[in-house]
Simulated scan of single mutants.
Amino acid sequence: MSQKPLIVIVGPTAVGKTGLSVELALKINGEIISADSMQIYKYMDIGTAKATPKERKGVKHYLLDEITPDEEFSVARYKELADRYIDEIISKGKLPIMVGGTGLYVNAVTDNIKFSETICDWDYRNQLQILAETNGNEYLHKMLEEVDPVTAQRLHTNDTRRIIRALEVYKYTGIPISRHQEESRKEPSPYKLAMIGLTMDREWLYQRINERVEIMIEQGLVNEVQKLLDMGYNKEMTSMKGLGYKEIIDYLNGETTFEQAIDILKRDTRRYAKRQLTWFRRDKRIHWIHIHKEDSKKELIEKCLKYIAEIGIM
Rank of each mutant, 00 (worst) to 15 (best):
Ile291Asn: 03
Arg285Val: 05
His292Arg: 12
Leu265Ala: 11
Arg208Ala: 14
Leu252Pro: 01
Val222Phe: 14
Phe280Arg: 01
Glu255Tyr: 03
Trp279Leu: 09
Thr256Gln: 06
Lys246Ile: 12
Tyr251Met: 05
Ile209His: 10
Arg267Cys: 03
Ile286Trp: 02
Thr269Tyr: 08
Ile249Thr: 02
Asp230Met: 13
Asn253Gln: 15
Asn210Trp: 04
Asn234Phe: 07
Thr269Val: 11
Leu243Phe: 10
Ile289Trp: 01
Ile262Ser: 02
Val213Met: 01
Ile217Tyr: 09
Gln219Val: 10
Gln260Gly: 04
Leu243Gly: 08
Thr238Tyr: 11
Phe258Gly: 02
Leu277Cys: 04
Gly242Pro: 02
Gly244Asn: 06
Glu259Ile: 00
Leu221Ala: 07
Glu259Gly: 02
Ile286Val: 10
Ile249Asp: 03
Asn234Trp: 07
Asn253Val: 07
Glu247Val: 01
Ile215Gly: 10
Ile289Met: 01
Lys235Thr: 10
Glu218Gln: 15
Ser239Gln: 07
Ile248Cys: 07
Glu236Gln: 12
Glu211Tyr: 13
Leu252Trp: 01
Thr257Arg: 05
Tyr245Val: 13
Arg271Pro: 08
Asp283Ser: 03
Thr238Lys: 11
Gly254Cys: 04
Lys266Met: 05
Met240Ile: 05
Gln219Ala: 14
Ile248Thr: 07
Leu229Pro: 01
Phe280Ser: 00
Lys266Ile: 09
Glu214Gly: 13
Gln260His: 02
Leu229Asn: 04
Ile215Phe: 15
Ile209Gln: 03
Thr269Leu: 14
Glu214Gln: 13
Lys246Ser: 13
Ile291Cys: 05
